Simulated assay, not measured.
Amino acid sequence: MAGTTGEAVVAVSRRIGARAGEVFGILSDPGRHLDLDGSGMLRGCVRGGAVSGVGDVFVMRMHYERYGAYETNNHIVEYERDRRIGWETRPGRGHPDATAPVRAWGHRWIFDLLPDGAGATVVTETFDGSRMPEDRRTEVTEGRAWWQTQMAGTLERLAELCAAR
């Protein structure tokens, strides 16, 4: 596992013993995200089956100590089957930022998959906060170690899910 950071970007990589298509199948199904969550913030999928391309939206139930229970609306912004999937998270029902006009957070979760020999894939999870308003970007840069730990946990759970298949 390796971790890298930029000003408002945090990335963690891990080699997983599964083909890219298997890994992508899990990542592209929001119903499986609760099984992956290394942060403990996810509570389940409200709406959305497996995503099939840019423009799809899925809604997740979340809980964060500062906000309590809320939902996020996740817009697929990057999609290359078996190689890359990314979504931009926006505040949903119950979140204090979900009032009119909706203030987009601008951050993205991206998973890059790089085949690595027969039956293995290097998966890089990236939290890209470079599009966030400056006052929000501080949360990413100051909490970098926390983000890396949570992301490493997600990749560990992903590896376990793939091994169980």
Rank of each mutant, 00 (worst) to 15 (best):
R136L: 15
A104F: 11
G49T: 06
D82G: 01
S39K: 07
C45W: 05
Y64V: 13
P96I: 08
L114K: 13
S39N: 09
D135V: 11
A104V: 08
E134K: 12
G68I: 04
L34Y: 13
V102Q: 07
P133C: 07
G53V: 01
N73Y: 14
W109R: 02
H95K: 02
V54S: 04
Y64G: 14
G86I: 03
R84N: 06
D37H: 04
S28E: 12
E78G: 07
E134A: 14
G86E: 02
P91C: 02
G106T: 00
R47C: 10
E134D: 14
V59A: 09
G117R: 00
N74A: 08
R32V: 07
L36C: 04
D35T: 06
G48L: 08
H95V: 02
R47Q: 15
L42S: 12
A104G: 14
L27F: 08
I110C: 07
G117C: 04
F24P: 01
D35E: 15
N74R: 06
I26A: 08
V57R: 13
E88F: 00
G53P: 04
G49H: 10
R103N: 09
V51H: 04
G49D: 14
S130A: 11
H33D: 12
I110T: 10
A104H: 13
M41S: 15
P96V: 10
D37E: 09
G94T: 03
D135Q: 12
I76L: 10
V122Y: 02
L27Y: 02
Y79L: 08
A69D: 15
G25Y: 05
N74T: 05
T121D: 01
H75F: 13
V123Y: 03
A69K: 14
G106W: 00
P91S: 05
R32S: 12
I110S: 00
H63N: 12
S130T: 11
F111P: 02
R43K: 14
L34W: 08
N73Q: 14
R103A: 14
G119F: 01
T121V: 01
P91G: 01
E65V: 13
A120T: 06
A118Y: 03
G38Q: 07
H33V: 05
S28Q: 13
F127K: 03
G106H: 00
S52M: 11
V46A: 12
L42W: 09
V59H: 08
G92D: 00
G31Y: 04
V57K: 09
D29N: 14
R93F: 11
A100Y: 13
E65R: 13
P96G: 10
G48R: 03
G92M: 05
D82H: 10
W105G: 09
V51N: 01
G40D: 11
A120L: 00
P91V: 03
G68F: 03
D29M: 04
R136Q: 14
A69F: 14
Y79H: 11
P91L: 06
E71P: 05
A69L: 12
G55I: 01
R131M: 10
T124E: 05
H75L: 15
Y70S: 02
A98L: 06
F58W: 11
W109L: 08
H95C: 05
R108H: 03
W87H: 12
Y79R: 07
R83N: 09
E125L: 09
D82Q: 10
L34T: 10
L34P: 06
A69E: 15
R47N: 12
R61D: 15
D97C: 04
A69S: 15
P133D: 03
R103H: 10
P133L: 05
S28G: 11
H75G: 04
S28R: 15
M60D: 12
A50V: 11
